[in-house]
Lab assay of single mutants.
Amino acid sequence: MAAGGDHGSPDSYRSPLASRYASPEMCFVFSDRYKFRTWRQLWLWLAEAEQTLGLPITDEQIQEMKSNLENIDFKMAAEEEKRLRHDVMAHVHTFGHCCPKAAGIIHLGATSCYVGDNTDLIILRNALDLLLPKLARVISRLADFAKERASLPTLGFTHFQPAQLTTVGKRCCLWIQDLCMDLQNLKRVRDDLRFRGVKGTTGTQASFLQLFEGDDHKVEQLDKMVTEKAGFKRAFIITGQTYTRKVDIEVLSVLASLGASVHKICTDIRLLANLKEMEEPFEKQQIGSSAMPYKRNPMRSERCCSLARHLMTLVMDPLQTASVQWFERTLDDSANRRICLAEAFLTADTILNTLQNISEGLVVYPKVIERRIRQELPFMATENIIMAMVKAGGSRQDCHEKIRVLSQQAASVVKQEGGDNDLIERIQVDAYFSPIHSQLDHLLDPSSFTGRASQQVQRFLEEEVYPLLKPYESVMKVKAELCL
């Protein structure tokens, strides 16, 4: 049975990233139509530049190519590739079939990587351009969430054990800070992308030097003109047959890092959902379990974690691919890159769409948070109580021993009897502590235990987050809708 299948058929496997999760716009960027249309555009740009620099290419040939950029006979191309065992030459023939007058000058002087690699770089750039505003929107939604809850005390956790208090907004800023680093890295790697350009079979530009009869300047002009037509500021000066596969490492490393950030955020949300302090959106008709109707599973956060793990592992592909590119190139890269580049971007696209949807509907339960604080705060307040007693004339050592005994009794009630923490009640009825009984409410005010959390939130948002989001103001209103 021949390899390949009808990918629109229910009898043929289709990647869930495309069929179930990723956005239509990201799927289109990695589609065959987008790819092969870009090949034709690159052939047109090459012909236009070659004509401008004096090669015998007519206006009629150029116009014929322009008129057929979208006229792609995919069936013919597939048949040609089956016959020739070469995808680029299959599309040269297919393009030439609908451009008979231009057929002889299509791909003039070029090698397969002229269309293959340059198209990949265009796709990487455009895919990054799709991700950047999506990530900015996630940051914006979380920034709104953090600002609104900047002063809401909550129990902090280290080692997932109760620690000092923080605020809900401050905790959210930990998430935002990681995503801001990801946004900066995505922008950097996007701006650092260079075009492969017009380089020939081993990167020496020998074929173009021959076409222009040894004119170095025209060869350099050709490279520059096509690079500018493709919208790049610069091209690699040095290439082998391909652009260095280190570029793929750079791009997928940034995406993998984004995956790590999203995994951490969504894990926190899942843990908070278990504590009943916070939940992701839950639709009115949504079913959490087929057997347990009360369940409210954090399905979206779980999906993000599941896909983020996949995204983090994909960076190993370009690392290994770059390491086995012998001399000017081997074909070890080809099949692998067809999979890992598309999957990385479709996965990143999915987790950003999902995280935006989550961040637009996060639900906080202040009463649950308050109750958990009441359970733990008495123990945390013991040092403040000791200091207040010393100020009232008591002995630190005597007070410490009193607190120690009462704390152990209260802990026994919590752990052995399943009761509430009654340390404060014990202190309130103990005559030894009568000098500070009137101060206990103040000493137990949760806001006095959150330090500068709310001020940190305000400063972080104003100095770091809002300036970073400013270039994306025009796209901030787009909502994230999930079908599944």
Rank of each mutant, 00 (worst) to 15 (best):
G5V: 11
D6I: 14
S12D: 05
R20C: 04
Y21H: 13
S23V: 13
E25S: 14
K35G: 06
F36G: 10
Q41T: 10
A47D: 04
L53T: 03
L53G: 04
G54E: 11
P56E: 07
D59C: 15
D59Q: 06
E60W: 09
Q61V: 15
E64T: 12
M65R: 04
N68E: 10
L69F: 07
D73V: 03
A77F: 15
A77E: 09
A78N: 14
E81W: 01
R85L: 08
D87T: 00
V88C: 15
M89A: 13
M89Q: 03
V92I: 14
G96T: 15
G96Q: 05
H97F: 12
P100M: 11
G104R: 08
I106E: 03
S112P: 05
Y114W: 15
Y114M: 07
G116E: 02
D120N: 13
L121P: 00
L121H: 05
L131M: 06
L132G: 09
P133V: 12
L142M: 09
A143N: 09
A143K: 00
F145H: 06
E148K: 02
R149I: 07
L155G: 02
F157A: 10
T158K: 03
Q164H: 10
V168M: 08
V168D: 02
L186T: 13
L186Q: 06
D191V: 04
D191N: 08
D191K: 11
L193N: 13
G197H: 00
G197K: 02
K199M: 10
T201R: 01
T204F: 01
S207M: 04
L209I: 14
Q210W: 00
D216H: 15
H217G: 11
Q221D: 12
L222Q: 01
D223G: 07
V226D: 01
T227K: 07
K233G: 10
K233N: 14
A235E: 11
F236S: 07
G240R: 04
T242S: 09
K246W: 05
V247H: 13
I269Y: 02
L271N: 00
N274C: 11
L275R: 09
K276G: 07
M278Y: 08
K284F: 13
G288C: 03
M292R: 00
L314V: 05
Q320P: 00
F327Q: 08
R329W: 01
I339T: 07
A348T: 15
T350H: 03
L355M: 06
I358T: 13
G361T: 08
P366E: 12
I369F: 01
Q375I: 12
E376V: 06
F379H: 08
M380G: 03
A381V: 10
E383Y: 02
M389F: 08
K391D: 05
S395M: 11
C399E: 05
H400R: 01
K402G: 03
R404F: 10
V405T: 15
L406M: 08
Q408W: 06
Q409K: 11
A410W: 03
A411Y: 05
V413T: 13
K415F: 06
D420L: 06
D420M: 03
I424W: 12
V429G: 13
P435N: 15
I436L: 12
Q439M: 09
H442Y: 08
F449P: 02
G451C: 05
Q455V: 11
Q456A: 11
E463F: 14
E464R: 07
V465P: 01
V465G: 09
P467K: 10
L468P: 09
P471N: 12
M476R: 14
E481R: 13
L482A: 14
